Every structure is written in structure tokens, then in C-alpha cells.
Simulated assay, not measured.
Amino acid sequence: MAKPKKNKNNTIQIISRNRVARHNYFIDETFEAGIVLTGAEVCSLRERPAQLTDTFIVVRNGEVWLNGMHIHPYLRGGVWNPDPDRRRKLLLHKRQIRYLDQKLRVKGAAIVPLQMYFDEHNRVKLTIALGKGKKLYDKRADMAKRDSDREIQRAMKQRSRRVRL
């Protein structure tokens, strides 16, 4: 058997991130999940990223499903290309699924995908998070805090330039 190819320096290679998730949700816990994909989908992910912004995760009948993720069809896939917007099953331990199902019964709780990546064994993994939805005033407070931190960093940087001169 041929040896599997390793990523450079045994690091992960990020495919795509959901940057909106941290803006819309308070993130409590994160989990790493495998994802069931076809060969053409994996080849397509190596060529270009997937879209994670409008995705959501549902627990049904003891299984976890990822809905709304778009993986572009593989250019050389032909008839083996599946539907780009199909539901995809996530692979988690049974106790993790039960735990997530129990936490979802709280009002405002949701499971959101944060990022998709190739791990050190070149398997596609998905980082999912258990979060609670933010209100509009929470989002505004976060933006104000981020702006004030940016202003403080800018002022500190200018002050350090003056001291050196």
C-alpha cells in the first residue's frame, strides 16, 4: 500500500470558515465532527472552498445532519457529481449526539458550523459549536467594543512611534 500524503508540517488545511457565526451567536462549546462526503465532493473541496454562511445543523432520530452547505460540482466529476445542496450526515459519538439534542431543547440554542478543514490525515472535518443567538443590542455592544479596542491599539502604536523618535 502507498503511504498517505501528509500536509506540510502535519497541520490542518482550512477549507472554509463561517465568519458570521461568531457575530450572530454566543459560542459555548465546540465539537469536531466528521462529515460523510462522496469522492467527487472531496476533490471539489481541494479545488475551491465550500459555502458555510447559511448552513444549520439539525438532530433527527439520533443522527446529526448538516443542511444548506453548497459544495461546487467537481469539474471532472461527470455523472458522479451529487446534488451540491444536499443534506450531509455528520459523524459524532452517540453520547455527544444525545448531549447536543438535550442542549437544543433550550430556547435560543442552536448548533452552528464554524469551519471546515482537512486534518493531518487528509480527512474532511467540521468544527461545530453549541451557541445561543445574540440579540441586536448584543451585536451592537460587540461592535462598539471591537471599535474601541481598535482605537486603543492605534493610539498605543502611535505613542510607541513617538517614543522611539
Rank of each mutant, 00 (worst) to 15 (best):
G131T: 14
M69D: 02
N61V: 08
N81C: 07
L92K: 02
L91H: 06
I57P: 03
A129Y: 03
Y25G: 10
M69Y: 04
I111V: 15
K89D: 07
K125S: 11
H70S: 09
R46T: 08
T30Y: 12
G78E: 05
Y137D: 13
E120T: 09
Y25K: 06
W80D: 14
M69H: 03
N67K: 15
K8P: 13
N7G: 12
I57R: 01
K6Q: 06
L100Q: 07
K125T: 14
A129C: 11
E41D: 00
R19K: 04
L52A: 02
P82F: 00
T53Y: 05
Q102V: 11
P84T: 00
G34S: 04
P49K: 14
D83Q: 10
N122C: 14
R60H: 08
G62C: 11
E41N: 00
L52S: 01
Q13S: 12
N18Q: 05
T38W: 11
W65C: 15
R22K: 06
L90G: 01
G39N: 00
A109L: 15
G77T: 02
Q13R: 04
V79A: 04
T11S: 09
L126S: 01
W80M: 04
L114M: 09
I97T: 12
Y25P: 03
E120N: 07
I111H: 14
L130C: 10
N7E: 12
Q13C: 11
R86Y: 12
L66D: 05
H23N: 15
H72N: 15
R86D: 03
I35P: 01
E63G: 13
N24K: 07
K5Y: 13
L100K: 06
R87E: 11
P73T: 01
L104G: 14
R98M: 09
R123A: 12
K103H: 05
L52K: 01
E47R: 13
R95Y: 13
K8C: 12
G68I: 00
D83E: 07
R87V: 14
A110I: 08
I71P: 00
G108W: 11
